[in-house]
Design a protein around this nucleic acid. Sequence first.
DNA 1: TCTTGTTAGTTACAAAATCAACCGTTAACA
DNA 2: TGTTAACGGTTGATTTTGTAACTAACAAGA
Lengths: 145, 145
Amino acid sequence: MTQKDDFQLQGFLPYLLNQAAEESSLAFQRIYKDRYGMLRTEWRVLFHLGIYGTLSAKEIGERTKMHKTKISRAVAKLEERRLLTRQRDEADRRLEYLTLTAAGQAAYVDLRSVAKEYDAGLAEQFSPEDIAKLRQMLRHLARMT
Amino acid sequence: MTQKDDFQLQGFLPYLLNQAAEESSLAFQRIYKDRYGMLRTEWRVLFHLGIYGTLSAKEIGERTKMHKTKISRAVAKLEERRLLTRQRDEADRRLEYLTLTAAGQAAYVDLRSVAKEYDAGLAEQFSPEDIAKLRQMLRHLARMT
DNA sequence: TCTTGTTAGTTACAAAATCAACCGTTAACA
DNA sequence: TGTTAACGGTTGATTTTGTAACTAACAAGA
């Protein structure tokens, strides 16, 4: 209970970033979980395919920095639920191209609109300049510059 | 591969925050893991006790927003490694007060100095005003205002 | 051709997180 | 009191993640 030293955990960036990330993901998580039974890994894959169209698992890995086993499992789940299909590349048979089905597209479009609204709700708590600055700094910290 | 729509995942705050949090925790994680075999839950408990002195598990939960089972298991591990001790509250026998041992204090002091340096390394990538603003916004998003 | 190495992706097993049920203790109140 | 609910904390079962080893396919050089 007693203050023992002056280190501020609330100022430590990795901690602060984690808390902010967790808190800010909570309500959105509930939506994709309740509505589609998805995990974080799964909506990420879904969004990448929704945004970029057909991609291989490898390309998704490069873009998300998720480990390949996570992607493999997320893809398997999404395929099982008929939200995406795979197509083997005949020129290089190690590769599989992943594409959303109509149902997958629909799920993506739905969740995308939720995400847009959700993001706007977060952003409106700050001035447009501050939010722009925040995004820029986060991209830099995430090495997504 | 084809651009299919204009939604920017790189602008979606929950995603961006997660990526930044993950990336910025990586090197620090390696240190507490390699040096003390700790998990994220464990260094968080250690830091809270190091900073605030004696706390109950419940108080740690309020401060960290970690689930009580996580705390229970982290505390058990830290006790097992003789980094903290428990003392039952005789007035309310449900409560246990947790305090770092000398070894726990030493681990805390060591990791705190690592954290300070680490944080400084992150912070110096931006101007002091920008970093202050970032911290403030993150605290707000984390509801730690 | 025949290694040897690398790559895309999967699988098996261990470690960790989550969730619900649980125990002992205290509080509320009929 | 006696009974019921709430609380602090733990445990066990299930789910999810992480780590390594694996398969199948391709590539490069001798």
